[in-house]
Nucleic acid binder design. Structure first.
Length: 274
DNA sequence: CCCCTATCCTGAGGGC
DNA sequence: TGCCCTCAGGATAGGG
């Protein structure tokens, strides 16, 4: 599933091809994936707009379309946002097709339809609940801010649950939560408030490390994820624990265990992660 | 506040 | 070969 590193890879791929480009036509839009309030205006407001920014916030992709409106995409589980020549046949489950003046089409495809697209000024989207208020950015220079440390100190939830909470940390999903816990040698089932300061620091230092490493490898593709051009990422082979239940721990060799934590499949090493 | 579960949804993979 | 079943999970809503 696309998490921060995958979404960041897509944004970096798309940005140079979208900046300064004009959207000529909304070729196709599936209303089911378009969240209000942007749904009604979308088809009329978007053609003729020029892209003047492409950015990531958590797992959301913001395509700025002249102030104040923007197109915001969340890829959910199986979403892809890909640039293709307009003459290429669109694959099934393509829910949005935007024709650019470069002759390329920006295509949003999502077989499982867990993803969403919305359109409007950011404040308005937040006000109506189409965009959630997100927590700290793991790639920011100032990470981790006091707010994240405080959230961990305060919370009686599991470490895993706090890492997955987008209101605390934006962009962390199941893969990188497990990877960060492994690197920090913290068991994901631990109560967040019971971590020592040393463990907490190690965990919060580990998160940007595993994420930057995954970005370097252009993201983790184990099923649906593709970059901005439709290619797979290479990070899956380098993961410590995710998807490796039953295999040997890369650090100590003991068999990695699988458990259900905070409603998610969680893989960790019994020996390394105390 | 916190947890769990159901919901949305399709494709992959195992069993037979 | 092919069918059926299960499972995967990000976000959210609702119940305990």
């Amino acid at each position: 599933m696309p998490e921060l590193p995958e979404v960041e890879t897509i944004v970096r791929d798309l940005r140079p091809h979208l900046l300064g480009r004009q959207i000529r036509q909304v070729v196709h839009i599936n209303p089911q994936i378009l969240r209000h309030p942007g749904a009604a205006q979308f088809g009329e407001a978007v053609p003729g707009r020029t892209v003047d920014g492409v950015l990531r916030r958590g797992k959301f992709i913001h395509v700025m379309l002249g102030r104040p409106e923007r197109l915001v995409v969340h890829l959910g589980m199986s979403g892809t946002l890909i640039l293709q020549p307009s003459e290429d046949l669109a694959r099934p489950h393509t829910h949005l097709r935007l024709l650019l003046d470069s002759g390329l089409e920006l295509r949003y495809r999502d077989p499982r339809r867990f993803g969403r697209v919305t359109f409007g000024p950011e404040e308005q989207l937040i006000a109506v609940g189409s965009l959630p208020v997100l927590g700290a950015e793991p790639l920011a220079r100032a990470f981790p801010p006091c707010s994240v440390e405080a959230a961990l100190e305060r919370s009686g939830r599991s470490v895993k649950a706090v890492l997955l909470d987008q209101r605390v940390i934006a962009g962390c999903g199941n893969i990188y939560a497990d990877e960060a816990c492994f690197l920090a040698r913290v068991r994901p089932t631990r109560r967040a408030s019971q971590l020592t300061k040393v463990e907490r620091d190690r965990l919060l230092r580990a998160l940007p490390i595993v994420m930057r490493d995954a970005i370097r490898r252009r993201g983790t593709s184990f099923s649906d994820y593709r970059d901005g051009f439709g290619a797979k990422g290479e990070a899956f082979e380098s993961l410590f624990v995710y998807g490796r239940s039953g295999y040997a721990c890369v650090r100590c060799g003991s068999t990695l265990r699988r458990a259900r934590v905070a409603g998610r499949t969680t893989v960790y090493c019994m020996r390394c992660q105390s």
